[in-house]
Amino acid sequence: MRFPRPKRPPDMGTAGVLLLSALVLPLIVGLLAGVLGATAAGGGSSAKPTTPQPPEIDLSELPTTADYPTDYPDPGYPTSAATTTANEAHTAAVGECFQDYGSGSTSDFRTVSCGPGTYQLIERFEGVSAQSYCDGVEDTNWVVTYSDQVLCLEYQYADEAGNAAIGDCVYGEQADGTWYQYECEPGTFKVVDRYYGSTSTDRCDARQDYYRTSRWYTNPDQSQLDAVLCLTYQFADDSYYAAKGNCVVASGGEGNLRLYAAPDCDSANAVITGRTNEYNPEFCRDHGWRGWRDDRYSWVNYTVCWRRK
């Protein structure tokens, strides 16, 4: 069984600017799972935040966590109209970046250092003109065609997270600050959908799964490249999605206890006896408890109480 989706918290914020500050604080997400608990804390640095690090736990014999949806369709990519103006993109090497000084449907690419607001050349095809040559070229989100050449490009958004694909994980210390891509692990946000041509989050809000929040990016010159990411928070187990009365599988011992969704109550060995949307182990009194605390995104905090069947 899959636990019912909880009520979604308020939207955590957006990115929607071309250049964002790179000054961020490091992230340290601590996971305390003695008689079940988890916390998060942080410090200060000008470098990329530290990837959230749960304690070393052997999960080889534990059940698989809830299967976050992964079968969303490829969002595809917008395409430009064919251009005829000769520019430096014709002879550039794969990996170089350009600024577009053109207007309308005509591009005028000039070589610049790679960074936010530039286009990076991912692949080129000579002697052809069909934009379909870029289909399946990883990281491509913009295609420029000429009479004898096709360029597969990746627009560089305001921060590293802006170029994350479905299935990638991201995190930032502030909702409206600089975000980065990370290995997927507890304390990060996974991209469950991505779409172009809008900054509206309606498509994310309409989802009926583990979607939690959204993040949007803009291109000031090409609205077709405006992009929205639908995100879900990565917890260490399934307990966040459990409601009072749900049957679960309690696995592991002191220091690595986890609660997982059970196919049915006959397969379970524990029952959820209470829940609060705060990190408060005392809420459970003499019952077992499982919780999570993220000091930066308090709307993911929770505590569930449980007992053995």
Rank of each mutant, 00 (worst) to 15 (best):
residue 1 M to K: 09
residue 1 M to C: 08
residue 2 R to Y: 11
residue 11 D to K: 03
residue 13 G to F: 02
residue 19 L to D: 14
residue 21 S to W: 08
residue 23 L to P: 11
residue 27 L to H: 09
residue 30 G to S: 14
residue 31 L to Y: 05
residue 46 S to D: 14
residue 47 A to D: 14
residue 51 T to I: 12
residue 55 P to I: 06
residue 61 E to R: 12
residue 62 L to I: 12
residue 72 Y to R: 02
residue 75 P to V: 01
residue 84 T to W: 10
residue 88 E to R: 13
residue 97 C to K: 11
residue 99 Q to C: 10
residue 99 Q to N: 12
residue 100 D to S: 06
residue 104 G to N: 12
residue 104 G to E: 11
residue 110 R to F: 15
residue 122 I to V: 12
residue 132 S to V: 09
residue 133 Y to V: 10
residue 134 C to T: 04
residue 135 D to M: 00
residue 137 V to D: 05
residue 140 T to W: 03
residue 146 Y to E: 04
residue 148 D to I: 05
residue 150 V to S: 02
residue 152 C to Y: 01
residue 160 E to F: 15
residue 162 G to I: 08
residue 163 N to R: 13
residue 165 A to E: 10
residue 167 G to Y: 04
residue 168 D to Q: 04
residue 174 Q to H: 14
residue 176 D to N: 15
residue 176 D to F: 15
residue 183 E to Y: 14
residue 187 G to Y: 09
residue 187 G to Q: 10
residue 188 T to Q: 02
residue 192 V to I: 06
residue 194 R to W: 00
residue 202 D to E: 04
residue 203 R to N: 07
residue 205 D to R: 06
residue 217 Y to N: 08
residue 219 N to C: 10
residue 228 V to Q: 01
residue 229 L to V: 06
residue 230 C to E: 01
residue 231 L to P: 01
residue 232 T to E: 08
residue 237 D to R: 05
residue 238 D to W: 03
residue 239 S to N: 01
residue 240 Y to K: 04
residue 243 A to W: 04
residue 243 A to N: 00
residue 245 G to E: 07
residue 245 G to A: 07
residue 246 N to R: 03
residue 247 C to N: 00
residue 253 G to E: 07
residue 254 E to P: 12
residue 258 R to L: 14
residue 262 A to W: 04
residue 265 C to D: 04
residue 273 T to E: 06
residue 283 F to G: 00
residue 288 G to E: 02
residue 288 G to K: 06
residue 305 C to H: 02
residue 308 R to V: 09
